[in-house]
Write a protein that binds this DNA or RNA. Structure first.
Lengths: 121, 121
DNA sequence: CTCCATACTTACACAACTGTCGGTACATGC
DNA sequence: GCATGTACCGACAGTTGTGTAAGTATGGAG
């Protein structure tokens, strides 16, 4: 039983920001957390909400988030199967991080779009 | 002349947090920014400050940060060469992000160390 | 008896990322 | 002359990440 991924453990020796990056730096992870901050999602709901993510990648990212203790996975023994994802307390404590990243990402988005248009011209 | 990396442009279609991750999600990048928030660094100084990063990777990360407009690179025509790195205004606006990630990373570090010790036992 | 829906998993392949090693340029000190 | 120091760059290899396609299980609908 793994308690936390090796890359997170390795980052301990460098810097807290690297620990954070190794936990939520994967593609889609912060977007997943951003959605889960609003409530519980089923797998298929997340898939549609997150965007152009493949099933395989979404499943793997969710497992990693679960391993690192950020996401709780509740399986219902039904057919067709139902699985619900929600944030743990640790995951919910990402709220400020998500807010900061979201705000800064919006700033960069404006820069990027401007630069892109200039380049296209 | 590239104005911003493709992965940043691609992330525009998903979510601001993905834009932010694609810009600072690379290994060492936030640590580099964290140091540069304190002032200007030469290449070798950064290398020693950041930790176990290879020269090649540090150089490449710095170039990416430069391409994305977060870092300014000042080259002095001297021998031996001297290059100084500093944050642009956009890069400096990462201060809140770095603070949030640093604080959350410290929380996760404590969790990880506890889990690690339990597992070792 | 076949199809459908859900939440995956595995196999495979390709791309991206990262480290190691060797090399470059050249003024200065020994 | 020869080594030294700085800030890299290029080729190569290994690891990690990501997508596509196909398969699994099972009860209910038709």
């Amino acid at each position: 039983m793994e308690v936390m991924r090796a890359s997170v453990i390795n980052a301990l020796e460098v810097c807290p920001v690297e620990v954070a990056i190794s936990a939520v730096g994967g593609a889609w992870k912060l977007t997943i957390v951003k959605h889960l901050l609003a409530g519980t999602f089923r797998f298929g709901e997340l898939r549609r909400a997150v965007g152009p993510v493949s099933e395989r990648t979404l499943a793997r990212q969710l497992r990693e988030l679960e391993t690192d203790g950020l996401v709780h996975r509740e399986v219902y023994a039904e057919v067709p199967p139902r699985v619900e994802y929600s944030l743990t307390e640790l995951g919910a404590s990402l709220r400020e991080v998500v807010a900061a990243m979201d705000a800064w990402g919006a700033v960069l988005s404006r820069e990027a779009e401007t630069a892109w248009q200039v380049r296209q011209a």
